[in-house]
Amino acid sequence: MTEVALQAVELVRRIEGVVSHTLVNGIDLAVNKGEFVAITGPSGSGKSSLLYLLGLLDAPSEGEIMICGQPTSKLSETERADVRLTKCGFVFQFHFLLPEFTSLDNVLLPMRAAGRMTEGEMRERGLALLGSLGLGEHANKRPNQLSGGQRQRVAIARALANRPEIIVADEPTGALDTASTEQVFSILRDIADQGQTVVVVTHDPALAARADRRIHIVDGKIAEITERCGGELVCAAVS
């Protein structure tokens, strides 16, 4: 039986204002452990908004998000922060590394914030992560001494630091060249293959094709789900 790592039920995110605006409009979604899901859709369709909700960065107006079966709608802001720290890893289009810190220190940041390992264990893990992403010799460089692709890989290493169940990435390759894009994607693919759950927003159909499941969003709603069936992606459902 497959285990559900991330589940969204009737998810709605509305912005109240002079003109109310619905960014996410009733999304039901269950992502299995170890699954690699790509979210696609036209610009402004609400992909980022959905991702922020899934990663507990934003709170839904209605509906529920369950992370590893645990409902999150009733959590306080501090508890949500704790879930983000330990269960969700974020990768953004822009690397968002702390400019004053070295690659290693940036990767160590979530571990230090969680404070569950000794300094030695943390460094060991940080270096191992950087090494596995091909950044072994860049551990002591600052973000401005790295290329765009390298920075994005440091950001991935940081997202992985606390061994989160779920990695969410919003156009992580949006600002990268083809070679770096390829590299970043195969890393995310490997992460999913090793059992962590990956949800990634992308504009690139070729990359989306490498996911286990592709969810197409239009106007804040799921328009189409494409699932992998024996190596081929086939149209599975249209809602």
Binding site: A81, D82, R84, L85, L97, L109, A113, A114
Partner: peptide, 14 residues
Amino acid sequence: RQDIAIMKSLGMRE
């Protein structure tokens, strides 16, 4: 401001 947002998004408490 940006660093603050990053740290919060990573799960550091306010």
